[in-house]
Computed example of a mutant assay.
Amino acid sequence: MQYKEAILYLQETDPKLSQLINKVGECHFASATPQTNLLSALVWAIIAQQISTVAANKIYQRFLIHYTQEEPLQVTTLLQATDEDLRSIGISRFKIRYLRNLAQFISSNGSIFDNLENLDDQTVIQSLSEIKGIGQWTAQMILIFWLQRLDVLPSGDLGIRRAIQHLYELEKIPSPEAVTKIGEKWKPYRTIASWYLWRSLSDSILGINL
């Protein structure tokens, strides 16, 4: 998928973001999702809660090596995984509980996800939030990286907030409400704007030391 139209729109509507886009270069958002099915995408999103993307990807790769052997992840595999094995991979006790909740929920109610791609963003968030351990941020990661919706802004994400602080030279990290307000001008391409903000952190383009 090409994002030329989205990038041109963002550059025209936000000079600060335009500078960042020029520094980062081409958008590779479509290639940012290595998961093979919705279950594995949800596992990655749970693992990624409140830790850096780099750390999350390392833990997730260990998870894949241990449990999938290059095959799509199955609910039965997750149900049979022991706490000891999951802990040895680097998954916290709280997240192990969330993974258990996820596996049990899908085992009993998996059909509710069959039509997920045809639901609007808010309904997707509401559906996923029925699973204990999955909140708005985790559901937004599914919208962004699995369903690849183009107009999602995870305003509570600390990385997004820090990137905006540095990009706009703000004295303090903006609140989620302030991020939402700033992001109004990025509609209907807030996902692409978010991708560039995340990239600014990983590349240290804005001089942020993580």
Rank of each mutant, 00 (worst) to 15 (best):
Y3I: 01
A6G: 03
I7F: 04
I7E: 00
Y9V: 02
L10S: 01
Q11S: 09
Q11Y: 01
T13A: 07
T13K: 12
P15S: 09
S18M: 07
L20A: 06
L20T: 02
I21S: 05
I21W: 03
K23N: 11
G25T: 12
G25Y: 13
E26W: 04
H28L: 11
A32D: 09
P34F: 05
L39S: 07
L39T: 01
S40E: 13
A41M: 05
A41N: 07
L42I: 09
A45G: 07
I46V: 15
I46T: 11
I47A: 02
S52I: 01
T53C: 02
A55Y: 09
A55F: 09
A55I: 07
A56G: 11
Y60Q: 06
Q61N: 15
Q61C: 08
L64W: 01
I65V: 13
I65A: 13
H66P: 00
T68M: 05
E71T: 06
E71Y: 09
L73N: 04
L73F: 04
L73A: 02
V75C: 05
T76I: 07
L79W: 09
L79H: 10
A81V: 03
T82H: 07
D83K: 11
D83R: 12
E84V: 13
E84F: 11
D85P: 01
R87M: 01
S88M: 03
I89N: 08
R93W: 10
K95W: 09
R97G: 15
R97F: 12
R97T: 15
L99C: 14
R100E: 06
A103H: 08
F105C: 00
F105W: 04
S107P: 02
S107M: 07
S108V: 00
G110W: 11
I112R: 05
I112P: 04
F113G: 04
E117H: 11
N118C: 05
D120Q: 15
Q122W: 00
T123R: 15
I125D: 02
L128P: 01
L128F: 11
G133M: 13
G133E: 10
I134V: 10
I134M: 05
G135Q: 14
W137D: 05
T138C: 10
M141H: 04
I144K: 03
Q148W: 00
Q148A: 06
R149V: 08
L150T: 02
L150S: 08
G156D: 13
L158M: 14
G159F: 06
R162H: 13
I164G: 02
I164P: 10
I164R: 02
H166N: 13
E169H: 15
E169N: 15
E169L: 15
K172G: 02
I173F: 01
P176A: 12
T180R: 14
K181R: 14
I182R: 03
E184M: 11
P188N: 09
Y189D: 02
R190K: 11
R190M: 04
I192D: 00
A193S: 07
L197P: 10
S202G: 12
D203H: 14
D203M: 13
N209C: 07
L210P: 15
